[in-house]
């Protein structure tokens, strides 16, 4: 095919290291962003589930703010706006904080729907066995809720990895940034874009395949009574 023959492989080989570095940055930001999102999401989902007074209203406001604004706008505010308040953060920190601000609410909603899917009768039978709140949480509610949340949590992870592509907007040298750079500098558009797509496939395909395997396994081994 013409397209493949015309590719400048020498160019691609020369700039491969750029992509490797950029991919590392993308993965690093995604990794920390997802990890913190899970932590924030877990705390928020428990607060929402138990309707902790005051806090659950704050969490509700946070979730609405986070879900109804684009990450790019959140990042611009963090990176360009906050320094005017004397809060200066590195671009990486902004990216991770921004991703956590966004992802926390998505994780919270997935985890909460898992918690809420636990039937009341499960809780009552645990109570009738004399279990206290903490033990019940640890042994009965969480293990079941997490299993139910897995598909949602996986989908959020993929979503967050994809969302990292906007960090080029605050001048982080991620995959998008490098691609744009190469296109601007050398006009080797096809090569740059091809490497971009391949890089994202290499990052995202395994996660996506793993997610669907996990989801299928959970469905078949499902606890369904």
């Amino acid at each position: 095919m013409g397209f493949w023959n015309q590719l400048n492989t020498e160019f691609m080989a020369r700039y491969l290291p750029w992509y490797v570095d950029a991919a590392k940055l993308t993965v690093t930001i995604a990794f920390w962003g997802i990890l913190f999102s899970l932590a924030v999401g877990l705390v928020c989902s428990v607060i929402r589930y138990y309707r902790v007074p005051v806090l659950h209203r704050i969490v509700a406001v946070y979730i609405e703010l986070s879900r109804n604004t684009p990450l790019l706008v959140q990042l611009f505010f963090l990176y360009f706006g906050l320094p005017k308040l004397g809060i200066v953060l590195s671009a990486e920190s902004c990216a991770i904080i921004g991703l956590t601000f966004l992802g926390g609410s998505y994780m919270a909603e997935s985890l909460r729907s898992g918690l809420e899917s636990i039937e009341k009768s499960q809780i009552e039978s645990a109570q009738s066995l004399g279990m206290g709140q903490m033990l019940m949480m640890k042994e009965v509610i969480f293990p079941q809720a997490l299993a139910i949340s897995v598909p949602g949590v996986c989908a959020n992870m993929i979503f967050l990895i994809k969302e990292t592509s906007v960090v080029s907007g605050i001048a982080l040298a991620d995959l998008m940034y490098v691609t744009k750079d190469l296109i601007g500098l050398y006009y080797e558009t096809d090569e740059a874009l091809l490497m971009l797509v391949i890089a994202y496939l290499i990052i995202l395909l395994p996660v996506s395949i793993l997610a669907s395997i996990l989801e299928r396994r959970l469905r078949y081994a499902g606890f369904g009574n």
């Binding site: 009768s121 009552e124 039978s125 004399g130 279990m131 079941q144």
Partner: peptide
């Protein structure tokens, strides 16, 4: 006071023996 419900409500993520031993051991 032991109680048994209409809908059994065994813990679906634990096997039979673990269902039975959970509360005596932990509680």
């Amino acid at each position: 006071i032991g109680m048994v419900f209409q809908s059994y409500d065994l813990f679906p993520h634990k096997n039979i023996l673990d269902n039975i031993t959970l509360a005596p051991v932990k509680v």
